[in-house]
């Protein structure tokens, strides 16, 4: 299985690539061209950067990525990558991918950004993690989905309860960094890869993108 990590021009992609390679029998490529990235078997939107500059980078391919995700291309959005799945963000200008309805808002807490290890409590429906675990977060903003039914794990920073994992169809977003969450993070990546490998081989949207 070929996994493409979209290079949004900033930050550490190395750890995520390494984490994925360790978690499963996959070929991981870092792809600067987002259109080329959606031709992989599964897509990863990585976690570092700022919303405005990342979306600026993705903007030319926005419709194609959106169509590919809605068409069933398995996707994992990590931290900022999760936030890019939503409609818009308080952090910066530009439209998000709009794959999940809702907005990205600043954490309602005194200490922002949230930096460190926080407890993730999965709902029973979440298949990527069976039990609560501590995950590494580094974020000042969180996703507020219009429909809370997409949230499959919650966390709390001070008094603000926020979505730690969201999913719709084959798109998964995690607000924490699984590649920085030790063993629990690697096992989550492995579970995601197994689920992605079970996805339909090709959807019409991806066929069109090729």
């Amino acid at each position: 299985m070929k996994i493409a990590i979209v290079d949004c021009g900033a930050g550490n992609l190395h750890s995520l690539a390494k984490g994925l390679a360790l978690a499963g029998d996959v070929e991981v490529a870092i792809e600067t061209d987002p259109v080329a990235a959606i031709c992989a078997d599964a897509l990863v939107l990585p976690g570092v950067g700022a919303f405005g500059s990342a979306m600026e980078r993705l903007a030319p391919a926005r419709e194609q990525i959106r169509d590919a995700l809605l068409g069933g291309l398995p996707c994992l959005g990590v931290c900022l990558g999760m936030q890019l799945l939503f409609d818009a963000s308080e952090e910066g200008a530009g439209d998000g991918l709009g794959v999940i309805a809702g907005r990205v808002e600043r954490l309602r807490a005194r200490r922002v950004p949230q930096m460190g290890w926080n407890l993730v409590a999965p709902e029973p429906a979440e298949s990527l993690a069976a039990r609560p675990f501590h995950a590494y977060f580094a974020n000042g903003y969180v996703c507020r989905p219009r429909d809370e039914g997409v949230v499959t794990a919650w966390s709390r920073h001070e008094d603000d309860r926020f979505a730690a994992i969201v999913r719709t169809a084959r798109t998964v977003g995690v607000q924490f960094h699984p590649e920085k969450t030790g063993r629990d993070g690697l096992s989550l990546l492995a579970a995601w890869l197994r689920a992605a490998a079970g996805a339909p081989a090709m959807s019409p949207a991806r066929e069109a993108a090729r």
């Binding site: 021009g9 930050g11 570092v48 950067g49 700022a50 500059s53 900022l80 580094a138 974020n139």
Partner: peptide, 9 residues
């Protein structure tokens, strides 16, 4: 740096 990489970096 914050603008390019995000404040959390």
């Amino acid at each position: 740096c914050a603008e390019r990489f995000g404040v959390q970096c």
